[in-house]
Amino acid sequence: MIFRVYVNFKDGILDPEAEAIKQTIANMGLNSVKNLVKGKFFDIEVEDKKNYLSEIEKISKDLLANPIIENFKIVKK
């Protein structure tokens, strides 16, 4: 079973890289883009044990995302 953990900056935290990408899109002459958010994801394959979900949550909270600046979301693939 594979879970995908998405991690991205919380609203209100400036992400200059996303800003730069947005600017580049504008420079490419494409003008329909209103907003752009950048993030990353981790695919985690787990064995079907009873506590896997809480483990993935712990991994996300304690390691993959920094709760001060980042949100995470777990999705089953």
């Binding site: 935290i13 200059p16 890289e17 730069a20 001060i68």
Partner: peptide
């Protein structure tokens, strides 16, 4: 020290990357 919680806040990428 910020990542382990001994200090508050976080250090992120420099504004000019």
């Amino acid at each position: 020290l910020t990542e382990c919680g001994l200090l508050e806040g976080a250090l992120i990428k420099n504004s000019n990357q």
